[in-house]
């Protein structure tokens, strides 16, 4: 019923943040979600596999930097997920 890639506390919060901010650096997401590097990477790779997010690896001078963007497919899936939540509440 619910998209299993979004229906998870960290991933739904993550997508909400990306919807509200378009893109966020990995470090900012880690701070906001209060998760470890490994945990965030694991959630992001699941979302990336579904093409819900786009992970961009950049270099700022010699320092690597990762920026996460939400894709149109991710935005659409999130909208459908919200609709599914709404429907569930109405029916229960």
């Amino acid at each position: 019923m619910f998209d299993p890639f979004i229906h998870q506390p960290v991933r739904s919060k993550l997508l909400s943040l990306l919807i509200a901010n378009d893109e966020l650096p990995f470090k900012a997401l880690k701070e906001l979600l209060k998760v470890t590097d490994g945990n965030l990477s694991s959630h992001l790779s699941k979302l990336e596999k579904e093409k819900y997010v786009l992970i961009e690896k950049l270099f700022e001078g010699k320092r690597p930097k990762t920026v996460v963007h939400i894709t149109p497919k991710g935005q659409e899936a999130f909208a459908l997920y919200i609709e599914a939540l709404r429907k569930f509440i109405e029916e229960n």
Partner: peptide, 13 residues
């Protein structure tokens, strides 16, 4: 669980 998810999303959006 669904209500909790909605509340979290609402906080951010």
């Amino acid at each position: 669980e669904v209500l909790r998810q909605i509340s979290e999303i609402k906080h951010h959006l």
